[in-house]
Write a protein that binds this DNA or RNA. Structure first.
Ligand code: MN
Ligand code: MN
Ligand code: ZN
Ligand code: ZN
Lengths: 126, 126
DNA sequence: ATTTAAATAGTAATGATTACTATTATTAAC
DNA sequence: GTTAATAATAGTAATCATTACTATTTAAAT
């Protein structure tokens, strides 16, 4: 894989945010640096970076989101503001459990918890 | 909401399978009974049945799947044959944990574990 | 500097889902 | 049973995210 300034920029943009951005968000950011960058280029490089293990992809409802954090982790999704927060749950036991109970060889565990984040709590609850 | 034979059929189709079908799969099944049923009708009724709590929707990668099982549960997804299996994990503690650790009021927990189902294991592993 | 092919920009195509609209069918009132 | 009101439908068009295509550009090896 040879160098391209487009791919470098796209990787930078993903790695500089915690917002779990969509392809379109990344595209708009990228246009500020390379005004004629193509959306196809963004998608192609995001897939490529994912294949190379540089970034992660997951799906929020029916749209793809990109994550610089390649270490296994889980997500909290706020139903009010849409924010997606990284969390680490202790699910070391889960793989063993599903192997034992369901004879299923787990490779990837994806946990998304939706609800209401602390920004929307009133004083009483705080 | 008034009666329609289309909605009744759609609900029946979802409730008679464990396959977590897509809208298109349901549409094709429905056409065998009502040959001129419209795909829009299928989508509209699936949304409606979901709003009324009769069925559940979740997203497998970027496409919607419908589930007769409205009780909270989790899924195993086989990367070889695509089968999606219902499981029940004991995550009663999770809501408390995220409230305590992250001040996040959990409403819905979605766990999908991908890997290899028992159909693909060889004799040694069995 | 020349050559080779990977990567790109721009655009077209696809697939899932939603929106629109004239027509049909359910249901309640008479 | 007939009528009236309007929810639901079929058929079609539009939208949105993503992928495919292709002529041109560009990285980088010789
Ligand atoms: Mn994350
Ligand atoms: Mn299920
Ligand atoms: Zn929030
Ligand atoms: Zn399988």
């Amino acid at each position: 894989m040879r160098f391209s300034k487009q791919r470098e920029l796209i990787q930078d943009i993903v790695q500089r945010t915690n917002s779990h951005p969509t392809a379109n968000w990344i595209f708009n950011k990228a246009k500020k640096e390379i005004s004629n960058i193509s959306l196809g280029t963004v998608y192609r490089n995001l897939s490529q970076l994912n294949k190379d293990g540089v970034i992660n992809i997951f799906y929020d409802d029916n749209i793809a989101r990109y994550d610089w954090n390649t270490v296994a982790h889980d997500h909290l999704k706020c139903n009010k503001c849409g924010k997606i927060i990284d969390i680490k749950l202790h699910n070391r036991e889960l793989k063993k459990e599903v192997l034992k109970q369901y004879k299923f060889e787990a490779e990837n565990i994806e946990i998304t918890i939706s609800g209401i984040c602390e920004n929307h709590m009133n004083f009483k609850e705080k």
